[in-house]
Design a protein around this nucleic acid. Structure first.
Length: 822
RNA sequence: GCGAAAGUGGCGGAAUUGGUAUACGCGCUAGACUUAGGAUCUAGUCCCGAGGAAUCGGGUUGGGGGUUCGAGUCCCCCCUUUCGCACCA
């Protein structure tokens, strides 16, 4: 039996001693920068579901090493965040103590997995050495106008006790805790990511090494929309309202305006209305409605007439102005022109409220449910104003362009592009994060902390009560300070930064983690970044990966990095699922669902190599796969068979008759595993290695191959298997008498000439159906193959009563005899 | 509703260009070793039928049609599942 309990720690210690993963960034001739998502200590330890990311990465790393590439493979800790703070409240542990002890545990887990990280590049985001640079970036953003504070309706999570960015709200609920968020008007810090919308969009087209799926998600999230702004005069209050539309060509059919109830002009519009108090109350009600309820699929459209009118600039007619919940305050200008004849939502609303409908086009790709109506209305004369000039251009685009030009000439409309993307809300009302470096001074106002006073340290002594409000704001020593500008009394900002800030640039800090003078070394960044290969889960598609792309552009504009895209190639590993007793369903493996498997127990029982091989064998790495407790033993048996084959080598000399065939198998294995690893097909690479191992065992049992050839086969198997099962392969390799670590050996090469056989099996089909097979010389001609096929009894039986029409010969594979009835 | 990906044994899944469907593993069955085994090893295992057996015949990649000597793979229609978007003007 393979004694993994002794062997694995032995090799882990040796690798640690040799500091096997360390790269001298200044000297390495070759450069390849790979990265895995850095762990977030939301629990106190990692489970086998997490392992997929890191085991995959380590396998890739070891493969690259054997190919002679000394890749940079660093790891760090995304250590700030709510889970630690919540744990502090729940268990009475300080978040810092909790986090740092979790890090120690996880680091030990990585070691037990046999994962080689370059720990000389380690970063920990909750330490001032790191987070001071978050503050430094904040100050640069403030200088360039990319950071600002404003009062706005924001997402408040009552469970997390803080606001959240739009990206962190999924289906109306907090992405982290699942609680429904509320809308609150609060003054908050934002990063102006919207200013980069166009560049973020354009960059996606250059990311050929990213999964299409992630790019689509980012494009949707940015939500670029081309159209026009149109001004409508409001004669009642002497103002005008600007609407955004993608269909300015339908303006002749705009029979009313609809404003979001939150629109700044709303109150003035219904100021003279007899029911103005009821209207104001309704506006308040809409404002506090959770987004999900308001924007949900079946949410009813509710609207109120303000009593005011606007002038349609194209027709000169007075049209009513309404407020309705289906118009959103933060998209476009928060106001629309309603064209019920050509827009489904406007149509439904017009019909519900008995508002006029006027068609502009007869033939058009009008929404299906309004087209019929439009036709009917035109038919009975209810609808007027079909303009022959614009009727009948289904292409739309040239007409729209012409319209915008016309409106621009008239002076009340212009081309406009809007985005769905909102600015990134970065302030959080929580303790465990980077303090925002701002001081409020009674005489100077809002004063940034100068660079020389960074870092603004997060105080350790803070009271955790779980009560509403940031514990930082109750810490007088932190809050009370002096104004950096006038020296008078000041109060510190007590909001901390979104922890996604930490992960948005960490890949650069890895390159000079101890630099006390600079955020990172720009020369090393230019040389090593962007990251060549990033491996992480799909869940970060519009969170981390969007923020990191944004921040990369900010740093680029500061002249700190020469590139705009941080990650050249992205691989999304799928998640691992397992049956959960609690829900009775198969779900993502997670601590909260209680369906995790501990790697520590698994490693104690069957070894880290077993877990690694099984994790990679489980299924295609990009797919979601279900963990099976039973199937793990298959990987364990495989490694044990390898070990027994190695042990059997000494006392089982063979005849050598199968030497050529085993040698051929060896070359096949090299070719298959190499091709599979190059395509990230780890699961089929393992399968190929199992087949090769079976061939070796067979040769040993049959005593058909010579000791030398079997020994070489085992050596090659060790080299090929090393990325998957590093410990057992190192052990066998060294016991075989090799002195170098497998990490330093050269990845084996295959010889095409060795793959061919002199005799091959050819399949005979009659009319496409398999009837027989025979062996023939590999270079046999069609005539020879046909003769051999016809010599078969079974083939003859099927040719009976039929006439041979032709034969199709695929060299080295099959011959198909085509017949017709006699 | 729109967009994308996928559907193969009891299960996870293989199958570069159209060329032996079901590799590899789990599970299952039988046997060996054993005081015992939920350990280990060996053999068998897509389904149906015939045969004592080696074998032989038929069927099979969600369903239906097509192209082709030949289709899991290409084309058309339909069904299902998963993911993304969804009152975005």
């Amino acid at each position: 039996m393979y004694d993994h309990k002794t062997i694995e720690p032995k090799w882990q210690d040796r690798w640690a001693k040799a500091r096997a993963a360390e790269v001298d960034l200044g000297r390495a001739a070759d450069k390849y920068y790979m990265l895995m998502m850095f762990p977030y200590p939301s629990g106190d330890r990692l489970h086998v579901g997490h392992g997929r990311n890191y085991i995959l990465g380590d396998a890739l790393y070891r493969y690259l090493r054997q190919q002679g590439r000394r890749a940079l493979n660093p790891m760090g800790w995304d250590a700030f965040g709510l889970p630690a703070e919540n744990a502090a409240i729940k268990r009475g542990v300080h978040p810092q103590d909790w986090t740092l002890s979790n890090i120690a545990v996880m680091k030990e887990q990585f070691k037990k997995w046999g994962i080689l990280y370059d720990w000389s590049k380690e970063v920990t985001s909750c330490l001032p050495d790191y987070y001071r640079w978050n503050q430094w970036i904040f100050l640069r953003m403030l200088e360039s106008g990319h950071a600002y504070k404003k009062k706005a309706p924001v997402n408040w999570c009552p469970s997390c006790q803080t606001v959240l960015a739009n990206e962190q709200v999924v289906d109306g609920a907090s992405e982290r805790c699942g609680t429904m968020v509320e809308q609150r008007d609060l003054e908050q810090w934002f990063y102006r990511i919207t200013a980069f919308a166009e560049r973020l969009l354009a960059g996606l087209d250059t990311l050929t090494g990213w999964p299409e799926k992630v790019k689509v998600m980012q494009r949707n999230w940015i939500g670029r929309s081309e159209g026009a702004e149109i001004d409508f005069r409001l004669p009642g209050i002497g103002e005008s309202i600007t609407v955004f539309t993608t269909r300015p060509d339908t303006i002749h059919g705009a029979t009313f305006l609809v404003l979001a109830p939150e629109h700044p002009l709303a109150a003035r519009l219904f100021a003279e209305h007899p029911d103005r108090e009821a209207l104001a109350a309704w506006v308040e009600q809409v404002r506090s409605t959770p987004r999900i309820e308001r924007e949900g699929e079946n949410s009813p459209k509710v609207g109120k007439d303000t009593g005011a009118v606007a002038i349609n600039p194209a027709t000169g007619e007075e049209i009513p102005v309404w407020l309705a919940n289906y118009v959103l305050p933060d998209y476009g200008s928060g106001a629309i022109m309603a064209v019920p004849a050509h827009d489904t939502r406007d149509f439904l609303f017009a019909r519900q409220e008995n508002l006029p409908i006027r068609a502009v086009y007869r033939r058009e790709d009008t929404p299906a449910d309004t087209a019929e109506w439009t036709e009917a209305l035109i038919g009975n004369g209810t609808v007027t104003g079909v303009d022959a000039r614009f009727d009948g251009s289904p292409e739309g685009k040239p007409t729209i362009r012409a319209f915008i030009d016309w409106m621009a000439g008239e002076g009340w409309g212009r081309a406009k592009v809007t985005y769905r993307l909102r600015d990134w809300l970065i302030s959080r009302q929580r303790y465990w994060g980077t303090p925002i470096p701002i001081v409020y001074c009674a005489s100077c106002g809002l004063v940034p902390v100068p660079d020389s006073e960074l870092p603004v340290r997060l105080p350790y002594d803070v009271e955790f009560t779980g009560r509403e409000g940031n514990p930082l704001s109750r810490n007088a020593d932190f809050v009370n300070t002096v104004c950096p500008r006038c020296g008078g009394p000041g109060r510190r900002e007590t909001d901390t930064m979104d922890t996604f800030m930490d992960s948005s640039w960490y890949y650069l800090r890895y390159l000079s983690p101890k630099d006390g003078a600079r955020i990172f070394d720009p020369e090393l960044a230019a040389r090593w970044a962007p990251v060549d290969q990033y491996i992480g889960g799909i869940e970060h598609a519009i969170l981390h990966l969007l923020y990191a792309r944004f921040l990369c552009r900010v740093l680029h504009d500061q002249g700190l990095v020469p590139f705009e895209e941080p990650f050249k190639n992205l691989f999304n590993q799928g998640m691992i699922t397992r049956f959960s007793e609690a829900s009775g369903r198969i779900e993502k493996m997670s601590k909260s669902r209680g369906n995790t498997v501990s790697p520590d127990e698994l490693i104690a029982e069957m070894g880290a190599d077993t877990e690694r091989v099984y994790t990679l064998f489980l299924g295609p790495p990009e797919d979601e796969v279900e963990w099976s407790d039973e199937a793990v033993s298959g990987a364990y048996r495989f490694l044990n068979r390898l070990w027994r084959a190695f042990e059997a080598l000494d006392n089982a000399p063979g005849t050598g008759v199968a030497d050529a065939e085993l040698e051929r198998q060896r070359h096949i294995a090299i070719k298959r595993v190499t091709a599979d690893l190059d395509r990230f097909k780890f699961n089929t690479a393992v399968a190929a290695l199992m087949e090769f191992q079976n061939a070796i065992t067979r040769a040993l049992e049959e005593k058909s191959a010579s000791r030398l050839v079997v020994g070489e086969a085992i050596d090659t198997l060790c080299q090929l298997l090393h990325p998957f099962a590093p410990h057992i392969t190192e052990e066998i390799w060294s016991q075989r008498g090799h002195t170098e670590s497998l990490l330093e050996t050269e990845w084996p090469k295959w010889d095409e000439a060795k793959l061919v056989r002199d005799r091959i099996e050819v399949v005979v089909q009659v009319d496409g159906k398999l009837r027989d097979r025979f062996e023939i010389a590999a270079d046999a001609t069609e005539t020879e193959a046909k003769a051999a096929a016809l010599a078969s009894d079974n083939v003859a039986r099927h040719l009976e009563g039929r006439v041979l029409v032709k034969a199709v010969y695929v060299k080295g594979r099959l011959i198909n005899l085509v017949t017709r009835p006699a």
